[in-house]
């Protein structure tokens, strides 16, 4: 039990006050994990934005001699078919960020809607939504995906994002529901009701802003999760049928035995890209937790 570890109540009072917002910025700028993660993400983002301008070729064009190692002309070398790996990489990065934002965003929206409604309304509404959440939670996602992909002729990044969104919201909904429950019992919610404020405005005007830091962290985590999920889909062959993505590059390199042929330049860039981006997001999340949670701050 924690009793002997002498008083832990005082510090928590410091949490969540607005003065703490400036304080949060102060700690954010000094948090190595957060700053480091953010730097990595920004580097890749810049690469995704300006990279395609540095190359004249499209990602799927057959531009040069096949199986070339990196050179001054083809910075990351070429594939078995003579496609430019650098061009594939930078376009793939774009797809990765797109799927992260769209997939993560969609997950967040569905999760928030379900979580807020269930948590605030309670009762029958809560029980129904909870049941749906649990059903989706235990669905064998991979099997469902295989079935879906068999029916989908054309798969785009957007479709991928939709699939991700539809299957990964339950844990977000759960977490938000729990937080909403605890905030709903705070007196300021009752006071808003006594002021005649309608339910929707109570949820988005009173409850949600209190979870802003938490929602932000959830989104960061979802972004990383969506990127990883998309890469997995690509890797098992459910990637976009048009365009390119980092996961699809990995998939292709394996399909054409790049490893056995010693073409490390084909799979190392997308591998590093995915690992670094997802890793950076998770590390940022840990960093943010330290920033927002005074108990974890080192002084």
């Amino acid at each position: 039990m924690t009793v002997p570890s002498v008083d832990q109540g005082v510090d928590t009072k410091v949490d969540r006050v607005p003065g703490a917002r400036r304080e949060a910025l102060y700690f954010a700028l000094r948090n190595k994990k957060l700053v480091g993660g953010l730097t990595v993400v920004l580097l890749f983002l810049v690469l995704a934005v300006v990279g395609p301008m540095l190359t004249a070729h499209g990602p799927r064009e057959y531009v040069g001699p096949p199986m070339q190692p990196p050179s001054s002309e083809y910075w990351f070398g070429t594939t078995t078919f003579g496609q430019d790996v650098f061009a594939q990489f930078v376009y793939g990065l774009r797809a990765t960020f797109r799927v992260g934002i769209l997939g993560g965003g969609l997950t967040a929206i569905i999760g928030m809607f379900v979580g807020f409604t269930a948590g605030y309304r309670g009762g029958l509404v809560d029980e129904t939504l909870n049941m749906i959440t649990n059903v989706v939670l235990v669905l064998p996602v991979l099997a469902v995906l295989l079935i879906i992909s068999a029916y989908l002729r054309v798969r785009s990044v957007e479709v991928q994002a939709l699939i991700i969104g539809l299957f990964s919201w339950p844990w977000v909904a759960r977490a938000i529901r729990a937080q909403t429950f605890s905030l709903r019992s705070r007196d300021f919610v009752d006071l808003a009701r006594l002021s005649g404020v309608p339910t929707r405005r109570i949820i988005f005007g009173e409850i949600a802003p209190n979870m802003a830091s938490y929602l932000f962290m959830v989104f960061i985590l979802l972004f990383g999760g969506a990127v990883l999920f998309a890469a997995t889909l690509d890797f098992i062959g459910l990637g976009p049928t048009e365009g390119i993505s980092l996961g699809l590059m990995l998939n292709n390199s394996v399909k054409w035995s790049a490893l056995q042929l010693g073409m490390s330049w084909w799979f190392i860039p997308p591998g590093i890209g995915i690992t670094a981006i997802v890793g950076a997001f998770y590390i940022m999340n840990v960093g943010l937790d330290e920033v927002f949670n005074p108990k974890l701050r080192e002084m």
Partner: peptide
Amino acid sequence: KTYYRSVQGVFQDPFSSYNPI
């Protein structure tokens, strides 16, 4: 809403009666 014009409440915990942000 009209009823709340004539009947109001104040609660126990002044700190949780205000939205801290």
